[in-house]
Design a protein around this nucleic acid. Structure first.
Lengths: 245, 245
DNA sequence: GAAAGGCTTTGATCTGCGTCAACGTGGGGC
DNA sequence: GCCCCACGTTGACGCAGATCAAAGCCTTTC
Protein backbone atom coordinates (compact mmCIF):
# COMPACT_ATOMS: atom_id res chain seq x y z
CA UNK A 1 0.00 0.00 0.00
CA UNK A 2 1.99 3.00 -1.27
CA UNK A 3 1.70 6.09 0.87
CA UNK A 4 2.58 8.71 -1.73
CA UNK A 5 0.31 11.71 -1.64
CA UNK A 6 -0.71 14.72 -3.70
CA UNK A 7 -2.12 13.58 -7.01
CA UNK A 8 -1.88 16.62 -9.25
CA UNK A 9 -4.87 18.80 -9.99
CA UNK A 10 -5.38 19.91 -13.55
CA UNK A 11 -7.34 22.95 -14.67
CA UNK A 12 -10.60 22.01 -16.32
CA UNK A 13 -10.59 21.03 -19.92
CA UNK A 14 -13.52 23.06 -21.20
CA UNK A 15 -16.13 20.43 -21.75
CA UNK A 16 -17.10 18.75 -18.44
CA UNK A 17 -20.48 17.03 -18.32
CA UNK A 18 -22.21 18.22 -21.46
CA UNK A 19 -19.62 16.56 -23.68
CA UNK A 20 -18.86 13.59 -21.47
CA UNK A 21 -19.60 10.15 -22.83
CA UNK A 22 -20.63 9.04 -19.36
CA UNK A 23 -23.44 11.54 -19.04
CA UNK A 24 -26.06 8.82 -19.31
CA UNK A 25 -24.54 6.92 -16.40
CA UNK A 26 -23.30 9.65 -14.11
CA UNK A 27 -24.74 12.61 -12.25
CA UNK A 28 -26.31 14.42 -15.24
CA UNK A 29 -28.84 11.66 -15.97
CA UNK A 30 -32.19 13.15 -16.84
CA UNK A 31 -31.02 16.74 -17.25
CA UNK A 32 -31.95 18.88 -20.23
CA UNK A 33 -29.32 20.14 -22.66
CA UNK A 34 -29.40 23.51 -20.97
CA UNK A 35 -29.24 22.16 -17.42
CA UNK A 36 -26.30 20.01 -18.38
CA UNK A 37 -24.58 23.16 -19.55
CA UNK A 38 -24.91 24.51 -16.02
CA UNK A 39 -23.14 21.45 -14.68
CA UNK A 40 -20.15 22.40 -16.79
CA UNK A 41 -19.74 25.30 -14.36
CA UNK A 42 -20.13 23.03 -11.37
CA UNK A 43 -17.51 20.53 -12.44
CA UNK A 44 -14.49 22.62 -13.28
CA UNK A 45 -11.78 20.47 -11.83
CA UNK A 46 -10.40 17.06 -12.59
CA UNK A 47 -7.92 15.06 -10.65
CA UNK A 48 -5.64 12.25 -11.74
CA UNK A 49 -5.08 9.45 -9.29
CA UNK A 50 -2.39 6.95 -10.13
CA UNK A 51 -2.71 3.29 -9.34
CA UNK A 52 -2.20 2.69 -5.63
CA UNK A 53 -2.77 6.32 -4.66
CA UNK A 54 -5.53 7.51 -2.39
CA UNK A 55 -8.23 9.85 -3.68
CA UNK A 56 -9.11 10.50 -0.06
CA UNK A 57 -8.52 8.87 3.30
CA UNK A 58 -10.74 8.17 6.24
CA UNK A 59 -10.73 11.29 8.42
CA UNK A 60 -9.90 13.74 5.63
CA UNK A 61 -12.13 16.82 5.70
CA UNK A 62 -15.06 16.40 3.35
CA UNK A 63 -15.40 19.05 0.71
CA UNK A 64 -16.36 17.38 -2.52
CA UNK A 65 -17.72 14.22 -4.01
CA UNK A 66 -16.06 12.66 -7.03
CA UNK A 67 -17.38 11.20 -10.27
CA UNK A 68 -15.10 8.65 -11.86
CA UNK A 69 -14.25 9.68 -15.40
CA UNK A 70 -11.87 6.83 -16.12
CA UNK A 71 -10.37 4.09 -14.01
CA UNK A 72 -11.29 1.89 -11.13
CA UNK A 73 -11.34 2.36 -7.36
CA UNK A 74 -11.89 0.46 -4.17
CA UNK A 75 -13.18 1.92 -0.92
CA UNK A 76 -12.29 0.36 2.39
CA UNK A 77 -12.48 0.81 6.13
CA UNK A 78 -9.67 -0.26 8.44
CA UNK A 79 -9.99 -1.51 12.00
CA UNK A 80 -7.30 -0.40 14.44
CA UNK A 81 -5.85 -3.90 14.49
CA UNK A 82 -5.25 -3.73 10.76
CA UNK A 83 -8.18 -5.79 9.54
CA UNK A 84 -9.61 -4.35 6.32
CA UNK A 85 -13.15 -4.38 5.03
CA UNK A 86 -13.46 -3.41 1.38
CA UNK A 87 -16.83 -1.67 1.16
CA UNK A 88 -17.02 -1.38 -2.60
CA UNK A 89 -15.42 -1.29 -6.03
CA UNK A 90 -16.29 1.68 -8.21
CA UNK A 91 -15.97 2.19 -11.95
CA UNK A 92 -16.50 4.96 -14.51
CA UNK A 93 -19.62 7.02 -13.96
CA UNK A 94 -19.96 6.07 -10.31
CA UNK A 95 -19.76 8.51 -7.42
CA UNK A 96 -17.25 8.45 -4.58
CA UNK A 97 -17.31 10.26 -1.26
CA UNK A 98 -20.99 10.18 -0.26
CA UNK A 99 -20.01 8.75 3.11
CA UNK A 100 -18.38 12.04 4.06
CA UNK A 101 -21.45 14.29 4.02
CA UNK A 102 -22.82 13.19 7.36
CA UNK A 103 -19.83 13.94 9.51
CA UNK A 104 -17.98 16.39 7.26
CA UNK A 105 -15.11 13.93 7.25
CA UNK A 106 -14.55 11.05 4.90
CA UNK A 107 -15.46 7.79 6.56
CA UNK A 108 -13.49 5.44 4.31
CA UNK A 109 -10.41 5.29 2.13
CA UNK A 110 -10.68 5.50 -1.65
CA UNK A 111 -7.77 3.95 -3.54
CA UNK A 112 -7.25 3.80 -7.29
CA UNK A 113 -6.79 0.23 -8.54
CA UNK A 114 -5.59 1.55 -11.90
CA UNK A 115 -4.53 4.96 -13.16
CA UNK A 116 -7.73 6.97 -12.95
CA UNK A 117 -9.25 10.36 -13.43
CA UNK A 118 -12.10 11.84 -11.41
CA UNK A 119 -14.27 14.93 -11.73
CA UNK A 120 -14.28 16.97 -8.55
CA UNK A 121 -17.76 18.12 -7.51
CA UNK A 122 -17.54 20.63 -4.65
CA UNK A 123 -20.37 19.60 -2.41
CA UNK A 124 -21.56 23.05 -1.37
CA UNK A 125 -21.83 23.93 -5.04
CA UNK A 126 -23.75 20.78 -5.78
CA UNK A 127 -26.28 21.64 -3.09
CA UNK A 128 -26.62 25.13 -4.54
CA UNK A 129 -27.15 23.96 -8.08
CA UNK A 130 -29.56 21.28 -7.00
CA UNK A 131 -31.70 23.93 -5.33
CA UNK A 132 -32.42 25.46 -8.72
CA UNK A 133 -32.21 22.34 -10.91
CA UNK A 134 -34.91 20.00 -9.61
CA UNK A 135 -33.85 17.14 -11.87
CA UNK A 136 -30.31 17.33 -10.50
CA UNK A 137 -31.57 17.34 -6.93
CA UNK A 138 -33.76 14.35 -7.57
CA UNK A 139 -31.12 12.40 -9.41
CA UNK A 140 -28.60 13.03 -6.69
CA UNK A 141 -31.06 11.64 -4.16
CA UNK A 142 -31.46 8.59 -6.35
CA UNK A 143 -27.71 8.09 -6.46
CA UNK A 144 -27.51 8.16 -2.67
CA UNK A 145 -30.48 5.89 -2.29
CA UNK A 146 -29.03 3.35 -4.69
CA UNK A 147 -25.85 3.34 -2.69
CA UNK A 148 -27.92 2.36 0.34
CA UNK A 149 -29.66 -0.39 -1.60
CA UNK A 150 -26.31 -1.62 -2.91
CA UNK A 151 -24.98 -1.75 0.63
CA UNK A 152 -27.98 -3.82 1.69
CA UNK A 153 -27.14 -6.21 -1.11
CA UNK A 154 -23.63 -6.56 0.26
CA UNK A 155 -25.06 -7.15 3.71
CA UNK A 156 -27.01 -10.05 2.24
CA UNK A 157 -23.88 -11.43 0.63
CA UNK A 158 -22.02 -11.24 3.90
CA UNK A 159 -24.84 -12.25 6.18
CA UNK A 160 -26.52 -15.20 4.56
CA UNK A 161 -24.69 -16.42 1.47
CA UNK A 162 -22.13 -19.17 1.25
CA UNK A 163 -18.74 -18.61 -0.33
CA UNK A 164 -19.62 -19.72 -3.86
CA UNK A 165 -22.87 -17.77 -3.86
CA UNK A 166 -20.97 -14.66 -2.87
CA UNK A 167 -18.46 -15.03 -5.65
CA UNK A 168 -21.16 -15.79 -8.23
CA UNK A 169 -23.09 -12.68 -7.16
CA UNK A 170 -19.90 -10.66 -7.38
CA UNK A 171 -19.10 -11.81 -10.91
CA UNK A 172 -22.65 -11.26 -12.13
CA UNK A 173 -22.65 -7.78 -10.64
CA UNK A 174 -19.39 -6.88 -12.36
CA UNK A 175 -20.67 -8.32 -15.62
CA UNK A 176 -23.80 -6.22 -15.46
CA UNK A 177 -21.89 -3.05 -14.70
CA UNK A 178 -19.41 -3.64 -17.51
CA UNK A 179 -22.34 -4.23 -19.85
CA UNK A 180 -23.91 -0.90 -18.88
CA UNK A 181 -20.64 0.72 -19.92
CA UNK A 182 -20.54 -0.92 -23.31
CA UNK A 183 -18.02 -3.63 -22.49
CA UNK A 184 -18.43 -7.36 -22.88
CA UNK A 185 -20.73 -8.95 -20.31
CA UNK A 186 -18.75 -12.15 -20.38
CA UNK A 187 -15.11 -11.22 -20.67
CA UNK A 188 -13.20 -8.77 -18.53
CA UNK A 189 -10.13 -8.19 -16.43
CA UNK A 190 -10.40 -7.96 -12.70
CA UNK A 191 -8.68 -4.87 -11.35
CA UNK A 192 -8.47 -6.18 -7.82
CA UNK A 193 -6.46 -8.93 -6.17
CA UNK A 194 -7.90 -12.12 -4.71
CA UNK A 195 -7.23 -10.62 -1.32
CA UNK A 196 -9.32 -7.54 -2.12
CA UNK A 197 -12.16 -9.66 -3.50
CA UNK A 198 -11.99 -11.71 -0.35
CA UNK A 199 -12.07 -8.67 1.86
CA UNK A 200 -15.13 -7.40 0.02
CA UNK A 201 -16.91 -10.74 0.21
CA UNK A 202 -15.94 -11.58 3.78
CA UNK A 203 -13.73 -14.48 2.69
CA UNK A 204 -10.04 -15.29 2.77
CA UNK A 205 -8.06 -15.10 -0.43
CA UNK A 206 -7.53 -18.87 -0.47
CA UNK A 207 -11.28 -19.40 -0.39
CA UNK A 208 -11.74 -17.00 -3.30
CA UNK A 209 -9.04 -18.77 -5.25
CA UNK A 210 -10.57 -22.19 -4.58
CA UNK A 211 -14.02 -20.97 -5.59
CA UNK A 212 -12.62 -19.65 -8.87
CA UNK A 213 -10.98 -23.02 -9.48
CA UNK A 214 -14.20 -24.83 -8.69
CA UNK A 215 -16.21 -22.63 -11.05
CA UNK A 216 -13.66 -23.38 -13.73
CA UNK A 217 -13.82 -27.14 -13.13
CA UNK A 218 -17.59 -26.95 -13.41
CA UNK A 219 -17.37 -25.09 -16.70
CA UNK A 220 -19.00 -21.93 -15.40
CA UNK A 221 -16.08 -19.64 -16.12
CA UNK A 222 -12.57 -19.61 -17.52
CA UNK A 223 -10.04 -17.91 -15.26
CA UNK A 224 -6.53 -17.02 -16.06
CA UNK A 225 -5.07 -14.80 -13.40
CA UNK A 226 -7.08 -11.59 -13.53
CA UNK A 227 -8.75 -12.41 -16.82
CA UNK A 228 -12.27 -13.80 -16.50
CA UNK A 229 -14.51 -15.27 -19.14
CA UNK A 230 -18.01 -16.21 -18.07
CA UNK A 231 -19.07 -19.33 -19.94
CA UNK A 232 -22.40 -20.03 -18.28
CA UNK A 233 -24.29 -17.02 -16.97
CA UNK A 234 -27.38 -19.09 -16.24
CA UNK A 235 -25.29 -21.54 -14.26
CA UNK A 236 -23.92 -18.75 -12.09
CA UNK A 237 -27.41 -17.38 -11.55
CA UNK A 238 -28.65 -20.82 -10.58
CA UNK A 239 -25.99 -20.98 -7.88
CA UNK A 240 -27.59 -17.92 -6.35
CA UNK A 241 -31.15 -19.13 -6.27
CA UNK A 242 -30.69 -22.68 -5.15
CA UNK A 243 -30.37 -23.43 -1.50
CA UNK A 244 -28.85 -26.64 -0.38
CA UNK A 245 -28.64 -28.60 2.87
CA UNK B 1 -44.73 -13.31 10.60
CA UNK B 2 -48.27 -11.87 10.63
CA UNK B 3 -49.57 -10.83 7.23
CA UNK B 4 -52.28 -8.42 8.31
CA UNK B 5 -52.37 -5.23 6.31
CA UNK B 6 -53.76 -1.71 6.31
CA UNK B 7 -52.57 0.17 9.38
CA UNK B 8 -54.95 3.07 9.79
CA UNK B 9 -54.03 6.61 8.86
CA UNK B 10 -54.98 9.41 11.24
CA UNK B 11 -55.45 13.06 10.35
CA UNK B 12 -52.65 15.22 11.66
CA UNK B 13 -52.75 16.47 15.19
CA UNK B 14 -51.87 20.12 14.76
CA UNK B 15 -48.36 20.29 16.07
CA UNK B 16 -46.01 18.18 13.94
CA UNK B 17 -42.32 19.01 14.10
CA UNK B 18 -42.21 22.36 15.87
CA UNK B 19 -43.66 20.86 19.05
CA UNK B 20 -42.12 17.43 18.76
CA UNK B 21 -39.76 16.34 21.49
CA UNK B 22 -37.66 14.52 18.90
CA UNK B 23 -36.88 17.63 16.90
CA UNK B 24 -33.26 17.56 18.03
CA UNK B 25 -32.81 14.01 16.74
CA UNK B 26 -34.98 13.89 13.68
CA UNK B 27 -35.25 15.71 10.37
CA UNK B 28 -35.61 19.27 11.74
CA UNK B 29 -32.14 19.36 13.27
CA UNK B 30 -30.52 22.71 12.67
CA UNK B 31 -33.62 24.52 11.45
CA UNK B 32 -34.69 27.91 12.76
CA UNK B 33 -37.93 28.36 14.65
CA UNK B 34 -39.56 29.71 11.53
CA UNK B 35 -38.26 26.99 9.22
CA UNK B 36 -39.47 24.37 11.63
CA UNK B 37 -42.90 25.93 11.36
CA UNK B 38 -42.80 25.25 7.63
CA UNK B 39 -42.13 21.58 8.33
CA UNK B 40 -45.44 21.46 10.17
CA UNK B 41 -47.04 21.87 6.74
CA UNK B 42 -44.85 19.16 5.26
CA UNK B 43 -45.62 16.56 7.87
CA UNK B 44 -49.40 16.53 8.09
CA UNK B 45 -50.02 12.83 8.41
CA UNK B 46 -49.22 10.22 11.00
CA UNK B 47 -49.67 6.52 10.76
CA UNK B 48 -50.00 3.92 13.50
CA UNK B 49 -48.36 0.58 12.90
CA UNK B 50 -49.14 -2.18 15.33
CA UNK B 51 -46.57 -4.70 16.41
CA UNK B 52 -45.97 -7.22 13.68
CA UNK B 53 -47.49 -5.07 10.95
CA UNK B 54 -45.60 -3.80 7.94
CA UNK B 55 -45.09 -0.08 7.39
CA UNK B 56 -44.14 -0.95 3.83
CA UNK B 57 -43.02 -3.99 1.90
CA UNK B 58 -40.34 -4.58 -0.65
CA UNK B 59 -41.79 -3.69 -4.05
CA UNK B 60 -44.40 -1.23 -2.76
CA UNK B 61 -44.43 2.02 -4.73
CA UNK B 62 -42.30 4.65 -3.06
CA UNK B 63 -44.08 7.86 -2.20
CA UNK B 64 -42.91 8.95 1.22
CA UNK B 65 -40.25 8.48 3.82
CA UNK B 66 -41.18 8.02 7.45
CA UNK B 67 -39.87 9.46 10.68
CA UNK B 68 -40.45 7.27 13.71
CA UNK B 69 -42.39 9.19 16.36
CA UNK B 70 -42.69 6.32 18.81
CA UNK B 71 -41.88 2.65 18.64
CA UNK B 72 -39.34 0.35 17.12
CA UNK B 73 -38.89 -1.19 13.67
CA UNK B 74 -36.77 -3.64 11.81
CA UNK B 75 -36.03 -3.58 8.09
CA UNK B 76 -35.21 -6.73 6.22
CA UNK B 77 -34.65 -8.20 2.78
CA UNK B 78 -35.81 -11.68 1.88
CA UNK B 79 -34.19 -14.07 -0.58
CA UNK B 80 -36.54 -16.17 -2.71
CA UNK B 81 -35.61 -19.26 -0.74
CA UNK B 82 -36.84 -17.66 2.47
CA UNK B 83 -33.52 -16.63 3.98
CA UNK B 84 -33.83 -13.27 5.73
CA UNK B 85 -31.25 -10.56 6.19
CA UNK B 86 -32.23 -7.94 8.75
CA UNK B 87 -30.66 -4.72 7.47
CA UNK B 88 -31.36 -2.57 10.48
CA UNK B 89 -33.29 -1.75 13.63
CA UNK B 90 -34.76 1.74 13.86
CA UNK B 91 -35.95 3.72 16.84
CA UNK B 92 -37.67 7.05 17.53
CA UNK B 93 -36.32 9.95 15.49
CA UNK B 94 -34.84 7.74 12.81
CA UNK B 95 -35.91 7.75 9.18
CA UNK B 96 -37.33 4.81 7.24
CA UNK B 97 -37.74 4.36 3.51
CA UNK B 98 -34.62 5.96 2.06
CA UNK B 99 -33.95 2.79 0.06
CA UNK B 100 -37.00 3.48 -2.09
CA UNK B 101 -35.91 6.73 -3.71
CA UNK B 102 -33.58 5.18 -6.25
CA UNK B 103 -36.00 2.83 -7.92
CA UNK B 104 -39.31 4.41 -6.91
CA UNK B 105 -40.12 1.15 -5.15
CA UNK B 106 -39.28 0.16 -1.63
CA UNK B 107 -36.34 -2.22 -1.58
CA UNK B 108 -36.90 -3.75 1.86
CA UNK B 109 -39.63 -4.57 4.33
CA UNK B 110 -40.23 -2.41 7.38
CA UNK B 111 -41.95 -4.18 10.27
CA UNK B 112 -42.96 -2.71 13.62
CA UNK B 113 -41.44 -4.64 16.54
CA UNK B 114 -43.75 -2.84 18.97
CA UNK B 115 -46.83 -0.67 18.52
CA UNK B 116 -45.47 2.39 16.78
CA UNK B 117 -46.35 5.69 15.22
CA UNK B 118 -44.61 7.31 12.28
CA UNK B 119 -44.77 10.73 10.63
CA UNK B 120 -45.39 10.46 6.90
CA UNK B 121 -43.14 12.72 4.84
CA UNK B 122 -44.28 12.79 1.21
CA UNK B 123 -41.03 12.69 -0.69
CA UNK B 124 -41.95 15.06 -3.50
CA UNK B 125 -42.93 17.62 -0.87
CA UNK B 126 -39.68 17.10 0.99
CA UNK B 127 -37.73 17.81 -2.18
CA UNK B 128 -39.77 20.97 -2.74
CA UNK B 129 -39.28 22.27 0.77
CA UNK B 130 -35.61 21.45 0.75
CA UNK B 131 -35.20 23.59 -2.37
CA UNK B 132 -36.15 26.65 -0.36
CA UNK B 133 -34.86 25.63 3.07
CA UNK B 134 -31.14 25.08 2.65
CA UNK B 135 -30.68 23.76 6.15
CA UNK B 136 -33.32 21.10 5.54
CA UNK B 137 -31.71 20.08 2.28
CA UNK B 138 -28.33 19.80 3.92
CA UNK B 139 -29.59 17.90 6.92
CA UNK B 140 -31.46 15.47 4.73
CA UNK B 141 -28.24 14.78 2.84
CA UNK B 142 -26.52 14.15 6.13
CA UNK B 143 -29.20 11.69 7.14
CA UNK B 144 -28.73 9.72 3.93
CA UNK B 145 -24.97 9.85 4.20
CA UNK B 146 -25.05 8.58 7.76
CA UNK B 147 -27.19 5.70 6.64
CA UNK B 148 -24.45 4.79 4.18
CA UNK B 149 -21.80 5.02 6.89
CA UNK B 150 -23.95 2.92 9.21
CA UNK B 151 -24.28 0.29 6.49
CA UNK B 152 -20.51 0.21 6.09
CA UNK B 153 -20.28 -0.42 9.81
CA UNK B 154 -22.60 -3.38 9.44
CA UNK B 155 -20.49 -4.63 6.56
CA UNK B 156 -17.52 -4.58 8.90
CA UNK B 157 -19.44 -6.51 11.51
CA UNK B 158 -20.42 -9.11 8.98
CA UNK B 159 -17.21 -9.22 7.04
CA UNK B 160 -14.44 -9.29 9.58
CA UNK B 161 -15.69 -9.60 13.15
CA UNK B 162 -16.12 -12.77 15.16
CA UNK B 163 -19.42 -13.63 16.84
CA UNK B 164 -18.70 -12.05 20.22
CA UNK B 165 -17.30 -8.90 18.69
CA UNK B 166 -20.46 -8.53 16.63
CA UNK B 167 -22.71 -8.87 19.62
CA UNK B 168 -20.63 -6.48 21.71
CA UNK B 169 -20.75 -3.90 18.91
CA UNK B 170 -24.48 -4.39 18.65
CA UNK B 171 -25.07 -3.85 22.36
CA UNK B 172 -22.83 -0.79 22.50
CA UNK B 173 -24.60 0.69 19.50
CA UNK B 174 -28.02 0.19 21.09
CA UNK B 175 -26.75 1.63 24.34
CA UNK B 176 -25.50 4.73 22.61
CA UNK B 177 -28.75 5.27 20.72
CA UNK B 178 -30.84 4.82 23.85
CA UNK B 179 -28.62 7.33 25.61
CA UNK B 180 -29.17 9.89 22.86
CA UNK B 181 -32.90 9.51 23.50
CA UNK B 182 -32.61 10.08 27.21
CA UNK B 183 -32.85 6.47 28.31
CA UNK B 184 -30.41 4.52 30.43
CA UNK B 185 -27.20 3.61 28.63
CA UNK B 186 -26.90 0.43 30.65
CA UNK B 187 -30.36 -0.99 31.07
CA UNK B 188 -32.93 -1.61 28.36
CA UNK B 189 -35.29 -4.10 26.82
CA UNK B 190 -34.51 -5.65 23.51
CA UNK B 191 -37.44 -5.37 21.14
CA UNK B 192 -36.20 -8.07 18.81
CA UNK B 193 -35.82 -11.83 19.15
CA UNK B 194 -32.55 -13.73 19.23
CA UNK B 195 -33.36 -14.87 15.74
CA UNK B 196 -33.66 -11.26 14.50
CA UNK B 197 -30.45 -10.26 16.24
CA UNK B 198 -28.79 -13.23 14.59
CA UNK B 199 -30.13 -12.34 11.20
CA UNK B 200 -28.80 -8.81 11.59
CA UNK B 201 -25.40 -10.00 12.78
CA UNK B 202 -25.02 -12.86 10.32
CA UNK B 203 -25.24 -15.47 13.10
CA UNK B 204 -27.65 -18.21 14.09
CA UNK B 205 -29.91 -17.66 17.06
CA UNK B 206 -28.12 -20.34 19.09
CA UNK B 207 -24.84 -18.52 18.61
CA UNK B 208 -26.41 -15.26 19.79
CA UNK B 209 -27.84 -16.99 22.82
CA UNK B 210 -24.52 -18.60 23.69
CA UNK B 211 -22.70 -15.31 23.32
CA UNK B 212 -25.18 -13.65 25.69
CA UNK B 213 -24.61 -16.46 28.18
CA UNK B 214 -20.87 -16.10 27.85
CA UNK B 215 -21.01 -12.33 28.40
CA UNK B 216 -23.06 -12.98 31.49
CA UNK B 217 -20.62 -15.58 32.84
CA UNK B 218 -17.83 -13.10 32.31
CA UNK B 219 -19.70 -10.41 34.22
CA UNK B 220 -20.03 -8.09 31.24
CA UNK B 221 -23.81 -8.02 31.21
CA UNK B 222 -26.85 -9.36 33.01
CA UNK B 223 -29.42 -10.90 30.70
CA UNK B 224 -32.89 -12.01 31.57
CA UNK B 225 -34.85 -12.79 28.45
CA UNK B 226 -35.16 -9.50 26.59
CA UNK B 227 -33.95 -7.41 29.50
CA UNK B 228 -30.30 -6.36 29.29
CA UNK B 229 -28.16 -4.68 31.87
CA UNK B 230 -24.67 -3.72 30.82
CA UNK B 231 -22.33 -4.14 33.77
CA UNK B 232 -19.00 -3.44 32.13
CA UNK B 233 -19.05 -1.06 29.19
CA UNK B 234 -15.27 -0.91 29.06
CA UNK B 235 -15.10 -4.68 28.98
CA UNK B 236 -17.41 -4.81 25.98
CA UNK B 237 -15.39 -2.14 24.22
CA UNK B 238 -12.20 -4.05 24.89
CA UNK B 239 -13.69 -7.08 23.15
CA UNK B 240 -13.96 -4.94 20.03
CA UNK B 241 -10.45 -3.66 19.94
CA UNK B 242 -8.50 -6.73 20.87
CA UNK B 243 -7.68 -9.18 18.18
CA UNK B 244 -6.78 -12.70 19.10
CA UNK B 245 -5.25 -15.68 17.35
C1' DG C 1 -56.38 -19.71 34.96
C1' DA C 2 -54.99 -23.42 31.92
C1' DA C 3 -53.27 -24.71 27.56
C1' DA C 4 -50.53 -23.77 23.63
C1' DG C 5 -47.03 -22.22 21.08
C1' DG C 6 -43.26 -19.12 20.33
C1' DC C 7 -38.88 -18.01 22.20
C1' DT C 8 -34.68 -19.20 24.66
C1' DT C 9 -31.13 -22.02 26.54
C1' DT C 10 -27.91 -25.68 26.50
C1' DG C 11 -25.56 -29.85 24.86
C1' DA C 12 -23.52 -32.91 21.17
C1' DT C 13 -21.90 -33.23 16.79
C1' DC C 14 -20.72 -31.68 12.11
C1' DT C 15 -18.71 -28.82 8.48
C1' DG C 16 -17.34 -24.81 5.59
C1' DC C 17 -14.09 -21.91 5.68
C1' DG C 18 -9.84 -20.30 7.93
C1' DT C 19 -5.10 -21.17 8.80
C1' DC C 20 -0.65 -22.72 7.76
C1' DA C 21 2.51 -24.20 4.46
C1' DA C 22 4.76 -24.91 0.18
C1' DC C 23 5.17 -24.17 -4.41
C1' DG C 24 4.02 -21.98 -9.04
C1' DT C 25 3.85 -17.81 -12.17
C1' DG C 26 3.98 -13.68 -14.63
C1' DG C 27 4.84 -8.69 -14.96
C1' DG C 28 7.74 -4.73 -13.84
C1' DG C 29 12.26 -2.79 -13.14
C1' DC C 30 17.01 -2.75 -13.92
C1' DG D 1 16.15 -10.28 -21.29
C1' DC D 2 16.50 -11.83 -16.67
C1' DC D 3 15.50 -11.71 -11.95
C1' DC D 4 12.62 -10.74 -8.25
C1' DC D 5 8.67 -10.43 -5.68
C1' DA D 6 3.95 -9.80 -5.22
C1' DC D 7 0.23 -12.51 -6.35
C1' DG D 8 -2.03 -16.89 -7.04
C1' DT D 9 -2.86 -21.93 -6.45
C1' DT D 10 -3.26 -26.13 -3.98
C1' DG D 11 -3.09 -29.33 -0.06
C1' DA D 12 -3.51 -30.71 4.95
C1' DC D 13 -5.52 -29.74 9.04
C1' DG D 14 -8.20 -27.17 12.71
C1' DC D 15 -11.86 -24.55 14.65
C1' DA D 16 -15.76 -21.15 15.10
C1' DG D 17 -20.03 -21.34 14.38
C1' DA D 18 -23.86 -24.15 12.13
C1' DT D 19 -26.88 -27.84 12.75
C1' DC D 20 -29.59 -31.08 15.24
C1' DA D 21 -31.92 -32.15 19.40
C1' DA D 22 -34.31 -31.66 23.66
C1' DA D 23 -36.12 -29.38 27.40
C1' DG D 24 -37.70 -25.24 30.00
C1' DC D 25 -39.84 -20.63 30.18
C1' DC D 26 -42.84 -16.80 29.25
C1' DT D 27 -46.55 -14.67 26.99
C1' DT D 28 -50.75 -14.87 24.74
C1' DT D 29 -55.31 -16.52 24.12
C1' DC D 30 -59.70 -18.09 25.20
Amino acid sequence: MPAKLAPLSVPALREACSQCNLRELCLPVGLSEQEMGQLDELVTLRRRVLRGQHLFRSGDPFEAIYAIKTGFFKTDVLLEDGREQVTGFQMAGEILGLDGIGSEKHACNAVALEDSEVCVIPFADLENYSRSIGALQHHFHKVMSREIVRDHGVMMLLGIMRAEERLAAFLLNLSQRFTARGYSPTEFNLRMTRNEIGSYLGLKLETVSRAFSRFQEEGLIAVHQKHIRILDVAGLKKLLSERRA
